[in-house]
C-alpha cells in the first residue's frame, strides 16, 4: 500500500494517481512503500496525513503556526479576515499581517488571501495573489473558497504556515 501525500487515502501498489483525490504519484520517489515499513513506523508516518475536523465551533479561535517561528498567532475570526502584509505606502492594512516574518521576500501579496467564516466552517480564499495560495499543496483557484480543516498547511508564495482550531 502507499499513502497519498495529499489526502491520506491508502492506495494499492501500482496505482499511478490517487484513487481518492487524483493526486499523481509519479515522480514522487518520497512516497514510501508501506508494505516495506514495520507497523510502528507505519503509524507515525500516517499520523500527519489524517484530516482534521472541518467543524469550527462558535466561540472557537484560530491558531496560526508559522514555520520556524515559536510563538503562534491566535485570533477569533470575524466574517472576513484578510491575510497579507502591511505596506507603509498603502492605505489599507490586512487583519493578519505577515510583514514581520519577511513576508515580502517570500512572495506574500498585500491582500493575499482571506479566511471567511461560514455557519460552522471556515473557508480559505485566494484574493488573486501574485504567487498563489496553496492548501495542503494544492493551488487554490483565485476567488474560489475552499473549506479549511484543523491542521491544514497553507502556503502563500513561499511563506508556509499551519492553521489549527482552538
Amino acid at each position: 500500500m502507499k499513502t497519498c501525500p495529499y489526502c491520506g487515502a491508502e492506495n494499492r501498489e501500482g496505482v499511478l494517481f490517487c484513487e481518492e483525490c487524483g493526486q499523481p504519484f509519479v515522480g514522487q520517489a518520497d512516497v514510501p512503500d508501506t508494505s516495506r515499513l514495520d507497523p510502528e513506523n507505519h503509524e507515525t508516518f500516517k499520523g500527519r496525513m489524517t484530516w482534521g475536523t472541518a467543524r469550527f465551533a462558535e466561540g472557537a479561535s484560530v491558531l496560526i503556526r508559522i514555520r520556524d517561528v515559536a510563538e503562534p498567532l491566535v485570533f477569533e475570526p470575524g466574517a472576513e479576515t484578510i491575510i497579507g502584509r502591511l505596506d507603509p505606502s498603502a492605505s489599507e492594512s490586512p487583519d493578519i499581517d505577515f510583514a514581520p516574518y519577511d513576508a515580502a521576500e517570500l512572495g506574500v501579496s498585500r491582500r493575499h488571501g482571506m479566511i471567511r467564516r461560514g455557519e460552522d466552517t471556515l473557508t480559505l480564499v485566494d484574493l488573486g495573489s501574485t504567487n498563489g495560495t496553496f492548501l495542503n499543496g494544492q493551488r487554490l483557484i483565485p476567488h474560489q473558497p475552499r473549506v479549511l480543516r484543523d491542521g491544514d498547511e497553507v502556503r502563500m508564495g513561499r511563506f508556509v504556515f499551519n492553521i489549527f482550531f482552538r
Binding site: M1, R12, E13, G14, V15, L16, S35
Partner: peptide, 16 residues
C-alpha cells in the same frame, strides 16, 4: 503495460 517488471509483493498490486 504500466510496468514491465513488477516487484514481488505480499499484497495485491495494480497493473494498467
Amino acid at each position: 503495460p504500466s510496468k514491465r517488471v513488477l516487484s514481488t509483493l505480499v499484497e495485491p498490486q495494480v497493473l494498467y
